[in-house]
Every structure is written in C-alpha cells, then in structure tokens.
C-alpha cells in the first residue's frame, strides 16, 4: 500500500509534462502501485490559488477513495485563517505554502504565522517545499526558515519537502531532532540509501513517501522506499500509515 504525500496535477511553466490532468495522474498511480495521493493543482504555485483549490476539490471529489485534496494559498487575494477554515470545510486535509521565490513572501511573515496557527487549530498539516521539484533550477528556500516556522508553532504539523543534498539532509535531521512537529517528505532526496539513513537519524514515524508526480517520474521514489534497508514495519509506516495520520484520513 502506497500513499503519495506529494502529488500534483496541472501544468509546469518550464517544460511540457507527459501528464497534466487528473486522469493522467490516476493512470500514473495505477502503473506504479500507488493507491492514494494527496493532490494539489499546480496552478496554486503560479496562479490563482482560489481557482487551483476549486480544481483540486473537483478532482478529488470525483475520486474520494484515491485522492486527498490539499489546498494552497498565499497572502495575495486574502489568504489567511478565514480562507483556510473555508478550505478545510470544503475537505482540504492540508495546505501547501510556497513562499520566497515562487510567491514573494517570507515564512517569517504574519501571513505564514496566521496560517500555521490556524492549521494547527484545524488539525491539518502545513506543507512547505524548499524546492517544489529536484530539478527546480532556482535557489531553494533555506531550510532554517522552515525549522523556524515549525519551532514557533509546535502544535502544528509542518511537513518539510524538497531537501536533497547532504548538507540539507543533515540540517533536516538536526531540525527534526529539535522540532517534534516537523515531518520529512522524501520526493527530492537522492542520496545513497537516504531513506535508511533518515530513519536511522529521526525514526520512521515522521517520514512520508512522496513522488512529486507528475513533475518527477514516480518509479524513482517507489524504488527508493521498496529498496530502503529498513524494517517492514518502518516501510509500511513511511509508505502508508504516516500519511494517513498526518492528513487525518482512515487507512
């Protein structure tokens, strides 16, 4: 059983994707044995997040057994606690933030604090990517910014997505040792047996399987989990159980 904590649909402005719509992503899931995915419209990274969330709800609503809707928002067009509550009322099980380069605000901003506090009260995670995909071509968000957010709001689960290089990996492990509310989603991590090293450093309970599809080829992250030198119960936790717990959905 695999629950992809990091899936998208839509377009990528830098090159054409082989799959862009929900049906294409569902076919990818079937092909790679992924039963469930936490999904977000890529429109939310670049364009109107209200429209993106509407698309996400429509798609996930048509496939409630397969797709868990994850919202996104920014300070533009009245993002904040009120909007987040409406998203959760509509079924969102998490919210993605893309500060800095993509959406022009800081994780230290009042907006980020307001959303993160509200997410904790609503029982959903805040997902922050240091890079939305491995081959991002732009400077990543400093990991310390994500740690600072998690440290300021210990009652909110913060999912860290995007780290890869060894310095980032080590910094993430150290941040997770300091912040019990910080989880790690693995889609960008490329190091040799990195999942096993991550589990050794922080345990399996805060590690989430994610593919980054359709930006990434999902087979790579499936292999990363399947061949990680970890115990079967740890593999099950990473591949399925942890995502169910973090997103608050039944297994």
């Amino acid at each position: 059983m695999r629950f992809d904590a990091n899936a998208f649909f839509g377009h990528w402005p830098y090159w054409p994707l082989p799959q862009t719509d929900g049906q294409g992503v569902l076919r990818l899931m079937d092909r790679h044995g992924i039963e469930r995915a936490a999904i977000t419209s890529l429109r939310g990274l670049h364009g109107d997040w209200h429209e993106a969330n509407a698309e996400t709800f429509e798609l996930a609503g048509n496939h409630p057994d397969r797709l868990v809707p994850i919202g996104c928002m920014s300070p533009m067009r009245e993002g904040g606690a009120v909007a987040l509550r409406r998203l959760v009322e509509n079924g969102a099980r998490g919210v993605r933030l893309y500060p800095s380069l993509l959406q022009g605000y800081s994780l230290a901003s009042p907006f980020a604090d307001e959303v993160t506090v509200s997410a904790g009260e609503l029982g959903i995670p805040v997902i922050v990517a240091t890079r939305p995909m491995m081959n991002f071509r732009f400077a990543p968000l400093p990991l310390a910014h994500v740690e600072s957010l998690a440290a300021r709001h210990p009652r909110t689960t913060v999912v860290l997505s995007g780290p890869n290089y060894l310095s980032e990996f080590r910094a993430a492990c150290e941040a997770m040792s300091r912040c019990a509310n910080l989880c790690f989603e693995i889609a960008c991590m490329q190091g040799f047996q990195a999942v096993a090293r991550l589990v050794e450093a922080v345990g399996a309970d805060r590690v989430l399987f994610g593919t980054g599809m359709p930006l990434h080829a999902p087979a790579c992250n499936v292999a990363k989990i399947d061949h990680a030198r970890i115990e079967p119960d740890q593999r099950k936790a990473i591949a399925w159980d942890n995502a169910c717990r973090v997103f608050g959905v039944s297994g």
């Binding site: 090159w15 054409p16 994707l17 082989p18 799959q19 990818l28 995909m133 491995m134 081959n135 890869n164 490329q190 599809m213 359709p214 930006l215 990434h216 080829a217 999902p218 790579c220 992250n221």
Partner: peptide, 9 residues
C-alpha cells in the same frame, strides 16, 4: 539527480 517525468522518454 534529475528524475523528471518524461525525461528518458
């Protein structure tokens, strides 16, 4: 470390 969907294809 590029694992982009569609790269090999």
């Amino acid at each position: 470390s590029q694992i982009d969907n569609g790269m090999i294809e």
